[in-house]
Amino acid sequence: MSTGQNDNEIISQVLSGNQQAYAALVNRYQSYVFTLTLRITKNREDAEEVAQDVFIKAYRALADFKGNSKFSTWLYTIANNTCITFLRKKKLEIHSLDNEGVFEVADSQDSGLRANLVEQKSKVTMVNSAISLLNPDDAQIITLFYKGEQSLEEIATILGLETNTAKVRLHRARTRLKEKMEKHFSAEVRDIYN
C-alpha cells in the first residue's frame, strides 16, 4: 500500500500504469470531496454519486495534472465544476436560506439532526448543522477554507475568482453562519460565549 507516499509520487505510479495506486488518492481525499459535495447537494445519495464522479473524472484527466498546484486544489476544482453541472442537471434551485420560507423546509428536514444536537450538546454537531443550513456557495467556501486545507489564493483558483473576492465571500459566509448559529442555536452559542 502506498499511503505513506506523497500525492505526486502516487500520481506518477498511476500514470506509469499502476492503476491500483489510485486507491490511495481516493482514500486520502474521499472525506474532503464527499463533505464538499454533501454541503453543496444537501443530500447524501447525490453527494456520494457526485463525489465518485469527481474521482472518475480526475482519473481520466490525470495526465493533465502538471503539479503546478496542489493535487487537492486541482481535485476540488473538478469537484466544484462537477457539482455545478449536477445542480444544473437536476435543476435544483439554489435558494438562499435567508429566505425564511426555504429555511422552514431545511429546518424540518434537519430536525433529526437538531434533536440529536440538543441531546448531545455537541459543538461539532452544532457547527456541522449550522453549515448545512447555509446556502451551497457559503457552505462550500467555508468547507474549502477550514476543512479542505486551501489558502485564499487556492480557493480563488478553485472557484474562478479574484483572491480579494474570495476573501470577501469567506467573510460574508462566516457572518451568515454566525447569524444562523445565533438565531437557531442561541442557547448553545450563549454557552460557548460565556
Binding site: S31, F34, T35, E48, Q52, K123, I192
Partner: peptide, 18 residues
C-alpha cells in the same frame, strides 16, 4: 468552532466503487 467541525464520511464501499 469552524476548525473543530468534522468531515463527513462516505459509505464504506466508496473507494471500491470508484
Amino acid at each position: 468552532l469552524l476548525r473543530s467541525s468534522e468531515l463527513e464520511e462516505p459509505s464504506l464501499r466508496f473507494t471500491k466503487n470508484v
